[in-house]
Amino acid sequence: MAATQDEIVEGLAEIVNEIAGIPVEDVKLDKSFTDDLDVDSLSMVEVVVAAEERFDVKIPDEDVKNLKTVGDATKYILDHQA
């Protein structure tokens, strides 16, 4: 069953917490991965790989650069999950 928007944000929050140590409650739709959440380009690769596994979605490298905010990633996963 496909994940809902809330479930995706919750899942991304857990992933960002694990990788960057940011509290889960700070991971919100309008937050920028690099500017707000301490996720640099290498760590973003980790976030993407973890999200792919968790939400059964493929996020090609060329699409990763468009995922600036948690909202961008959430929408991408909603639209592409199997």
């Binding site: 990788i19 960057a20 140590g21 301490d38 290498l42």
Partner: peptide, 8 residues
Amino acid sequence: IPRPQARR
């Protein structure tokens, strides 16, 4: 060392 730093 906190885990987010240690894992890299």
